[in-house]
Design a binder for these strands. Structure first.
Lengths: 225, 225
DNA sequence: GGCACCGATTGACCCTGATCAATCAGCTTT
DNA sequence: AAAGCTGATTGATCAGGGTCAATCGGTGCC
């Protein structure tokens, strides 16, 4: 499942490896930070489940405008094809391992039904996550967007520190901006606001400590102050 | 497939009834304009394929902000569940007929594999369409958004008038606004701009004539004038 | 036919976030 | 350690689109 605004089922999809008993065991793919797994338009030969690391899925407009569609965390399935070609670029943000699956497993129901069912459910979860993301892109303010983003990441991959919570951000500010439909400047300013209001501390550029999770959640839903 | 920005495969998914040979034939559901098929949170018992008419899928924020997730046209599958509950409201915009399918067909691979495969592909197409929509919500200007919207509708359900093309808009201005992440006022002003630049004529509130389809397509991609 | 109602349009003004530009800070490199 | 590079932050200004408000116009009702 992808990073999106909080829903009650955010945490219910723990990392569930797809590998069924009948799946042909393919060796894992390894990507170093900055390496591309595929580009938009490439023919889809494989689907991948992220085993470890984080990838970024992006689309480009001809004039260079960019939209980050999703960040792929362990457990996420990436590379779902609609027409037979990839419709995003995929780049690794960290050292990443992925389990490949042949695209053909989508074609025939003849193959492993368990795997097939798992894929369908992965697709359905992705649709649900994307619907949340719509609301964020279309209807939320910069503050709400960033607060939502941090809330989801905290729930998904945050580290409990007792009262507070630590979140690692492997992506750049401009990745965050392009995910939320903002500019890097606005993302930066919004981080500063959150820091000034003591909701978060920015430990370093890739680590944020959430001191007041409930306040952040309130902000993500538009409750001011 | 849902209404989104133009892609080369927009028109390749003609109305393909899912009904496989082994599908239990259920009687079609009929909805009058304004009638709701389900609400967000309702338990999913059925999926539906739109046979005729148009429906609107919406999500609400607690403070009343609304996002139209999609408009469902004939051939579209609606009601995909992620957790077992609907995550949108669904309202008919016109007289609508839908073919219901039991939700359980998603559960067991035991049932009709053809139907199952069709559903997976419907889900994949929806993901693809939603990714286009992301770019629109996150990165496009009001002009580009409305132009994109009209282009897609024209391609999907437009009527050829020789040089120009007629598009029916069963939804209200505020539905369009909530789909594009704008306000009704901005949608209205943008329609007026398009009219003033002779790209379209507004025949009546629910009918737009596209006089210069290539100009509209150019606008949808950010090419000004 | 006249009136009321509600969505659409238009206008005036404002604000959020974009743009342009200048540091700043954490690195690598030498 | 100094220099240089790159991405992040901060500042100043601007504009696209939101907000608030008035008017228009089509539809239905009396």
């Amino acid at each position: 499942m992808y990073v999106t605004i909080p829903t009650e089922n955010s945490s219910t999809f723990a990392f569930l490896p797809l590998c069924g008993t009948t799946t042909p065991q393919t060796i894992q793919t390894h990507l170093e930070p900055g390496a591309y797994l595929y580009y938009e338009g490439d023919e889809v030969e494989w689907l991948y489940q992220v085993t470890s690391g984080v990838v970024r899925l992006t689309r480009l407009l001809s004039d260079g405008r960019r939209q980050v569609i999703a960040f792929g965390y362990p457990g996420d399935i990436i590379g779902f094809p609609a027409s037979g070609n990839h419709h995003t670029d995929c780049e690794a943000l960290t050292d990443t391992y992925l389990q490949p699956y042949r695209r053909s497993i989508l074609e025939g129901g003849a193959s492993d039904p368990k795997l097939y069912s798992a894929l369908l459910h992965a697709a359905l979860n992705e649709i649900s996550a994307m619907q949340d993301h719509f609301m964020m892109l279309g209807r939320k303010s910069a503050n709400e967007k960033l607060a939502s983003f941090l809330c989801v990441l905290a729930a998904r991959v945050g580290t409990d520190l007792g009262a507070s919570r630590s979140v690692n951000l492997p992506m750049s500010r401009s990745d965050i901006a392009d995910f939320l439909g903002l500019t890097t400047e606005t993302v930066s300013r919004t981080f500063t606001q959150l820091r000034n209001s003591k909701v978060i501390t920015i430990e370093n550029i890739h680590t944020v400590i959430i001191h007041r999770p409930t306040a952040l959640l309130a902000l993500s839903q538009g409750h001011h102050t």
